[in-house]
Design a protein around this nucleic acid. Sequence first.
DNA 1: TTGTAGGCGTTATCAC
DNA 2: GTGATAACGCCTACAA
Lengths: 338, 338
Amino acid sequence: MSATIYEVAQKAGVSTATVSRVINHTGNVSEKNKSKVLQALQDCHYTVNEMARSLAKSSTMSIALLAKDIRDDYYAHIAHAIELSLGDLGYFSFLCDIGYEVSHQVECINMMLSKRVNAIVLLSSPGDDAQMISALLDASASVPVILVNGFIDAPNIYCIQRDDAFATQECIQHLMSLGCRKLLFVSDFSYSSDFIKQQAFLKCGRQFASEADFTIYPSSCNHLDCKDVCAFIAANPSKFDGVIASNDIIALGMLRNLWKLGIKIPQDIKLIGFDNVVFSSLCIPTLTTVDNKIDEHCKVTSHILCSLFGGQSLPQHHHVIRPQLLIRETTAFIPENE
Amino acid sequence: MSATIYEVAQKAGVSTATVSRVINHTGNVSEKNKSKVLQALQDCHYTVNEMARSLAKSSTMSIALLAKDIRDDYYAHIAHAIELSLGDLGYFSFLCDIGYEVSHQVECINMMLSKRVNAIVLLSSPGDDAQMISALLDASASVPVILVNGFIDAPNIYCIQRDDAFATQECIQHLMSLGCRKLLFVSDFSYSSDFIKQQAFLKCGRQFASEADFTIYPSSCNHLDCKDVCAFIAANPSKFDGVIASNDIIALGMLRNLWKLGIKIPQDIKLIGFDNVVFSSLCIPTLTTVDNKIDEHCKVTSHILCSLFGGQSLPQHHHVIRPQLLIRETTAFIPENE
DNA sequence: TTGTAGGCGTTATCAC
DNA sequence: GTGATAACGCCTACAA
């Protein structure tokens, strides 16, 4: 148990008001009293009680970062950057795992309201669950809500969205420019972004219906069970010439499994992933992938929060970030006569 | 601004005590009053103020998880698991980035004390900085401190350490059993565990001095600039037959770069990494690596915290976890006559 | 079963 | 410059 301000005041022979002034550098205190207080503070091993302080000031100077799964590299990076930039502003931010279960997610949001945080940043799509959306709307009534990769159109909710549809289009255009005409989309459908990519893929399919084939692999895949897709591809060797995987882990799993099946990349099939994980540039051949522009996410998020706390109103509630296609060896151009 | 308990009491026509009883399911309240309160709670959009509650109960039911860098997969996993198991106990835990700068780390620890958390879990070695150790000792005077991969011998400090020396020994034994006699250790020396591995490597070097050569690559390496080591190896083709990299990223970087230089793995050189990252089983050839047994870390950490909060005293303050060598293709045995 | 009132540790507004 | 003292919102004996 740390000492209270009373004990310090008593030991220093002054009032609690004076002690408070010294602690917070507010108001004038005579040098003599100041040093007495400083000494007493030391002697008592005093640590301020933030509960009491927050209660008295009715402000916590804290921000909650909520993620479904902090093990996700993408969100860990964003969280890290936000913590840094907000720390500079004097705000304390912390990260919470809210899990995949909606009821628990809602509980966490309410918990944050109980803790009287100054803002809630949701690092992941709220999905389309009505309960979750309603919880966020409720929250936005008392505190600004930032959605990183989600969208809710409401007064106190600010959204930053990655344009996955655009990125998917870029992938397709790239593949087609290389001569691919038989495209396959593979995903584990565990993120809402997977569906956005799928929709964009289908849309391009309709757009280019006369020029190329667009297929969606119907089962969910991850790096462990991508053997099924690969076997499927190997069984129909001439059916596909370009594959888009919704993330690098799947792509890398496929890269290995297709290699084992004797399918050459990029000669036989070209392959693209998403996320630009470290290993995408270490594999053989290096993986063409999409960079999520995490830095930009962070910049925008920080900017929103800073403006908000700086008392400025933000006209723009919806920010779109365009990912960038990184062309590497899995989509290298191979001249026909080779 | 959420309503206070007073407003709810007034609206329901009861006292604040009754409202509090309803909120906390403590004490008996007549059905009639209960429903009145419940209704008022709804009408006022009441959210409990945790600051006030914590102050009154002088307990926050919360635990701080501190990490130098939450982007580190290893710690993100541990943090995730701890959050889950503590949530079941009714404790709220949150993760904070404390950065690499000692002064900031100390600040964060003190901030946690101000917040009156019930425990501090440091997810990463405190290093040997005197300031940091002193801060942790101070903290342990008022709250239990758990060190995941660190060691300080003090009453209220509990330590969980990964036995990296043991793991390194295992790697060396494995390589020697395959006939390797010219071993190289490569690291980026950014973690304290890197030094432990290096020490263990040197110790084995002395132990097996008559049988084999042990070399430590003097510069710091990561996946980007591991080209230097690889060039060095290529320039002295017969000088090394086994490489231990202190983490998988370096190992995977080397795997690619050695391949580009025409050095065959495992035929020419055998390679081992550390951490068992996802891609270690997706690369070609698959990487022999060391699994950190994250699940065990979590189990032990959770167990310590549960016992502590359950009021039990823990005789054992130091837990050691043995990593496990996973033998894969980069150390496959190649018969001599092949 | 219910209400009153004191206390949790700070901050901040007054007088002095 | 300094010191009472009233908030801040909630919990919990204690009394009724």
